[in-house]
Every structure is written in C-alpha cells, then in structure tokens.
Amino acid sequence: MLIPHPLLGLRDAQEFTYLGDAALLDRPDGLAADAEASFADYVYLRNNPAGVHRELWFHEHGDRSWLIVKRNTVTHEILGAELARDVALASRGEAQ
C-alpha cells in the first residue's frame, strides 16, 4: 500500500505503524464522574466499518508524524490523509 503523506507525498505503508480507529483521538475526561464507563467505550469498542475508515498511522520510519488516513476497508482505496495533530487541534477549536 502507499500512503499519501500530507508533507512527504506517497510513502510506502511499510514505513508506518498502524494503530487503529481515529476515534482514539477523542480521549474522554479522566476526571469526569462517568470516566470509567466512557473509558471502557473509548478503549474497547470500535465501529469497525466495512467501508470508509478513519485510522491512525505513525510514520515510524519517517518523520514520526501521526496521520489520520481515510481508507476503504473493503477495497483498500485511500481517500486522503491528514496530520493527526492538525485534526486534533481543529477539534479543540470546535470544542471551544
């Protein structure tokens, strides 16, 4: 597979380490009253779609950036990639 790194262009997927669903960006508040329930959901449950999946890849043998790659899990077609940090910052912006 080839991953379109937003800064470095098409890179071989072997340069990356895969983590999983990009929902892992949305870490619950560990000090909230319902933290145990929300963390159980966050840590263990997955949508696991057959179709477009937003997922985390780490450019381990590259620039060490975490990417969010949009990929179809049925066809493996890649629809785009963003820096996870940008996405995380943007979602902070929305939250505020």
């Binding site: 449950l45 997955r46 057959a50 899990t73």
Partner: peptide
C-alpha cells in the same frame, strides 16, 4: 470476520476489529 458488520444490524458495537 464479519461479526462487527452483522452485530451492527442489531445495534451493537463490539470490542473487535476486522
């Protein structure tokens, strides 16, 4: 292999990735 897909039809999310 398809548990996620099938159980989604019953409204369940699973601790599983395919």
């Amino acid at each position: 292999g398809s548990s996620g897909r099938v159980m989604a039809m019953a409204g369940m999310r699973l601790p599983i990735e395919s």
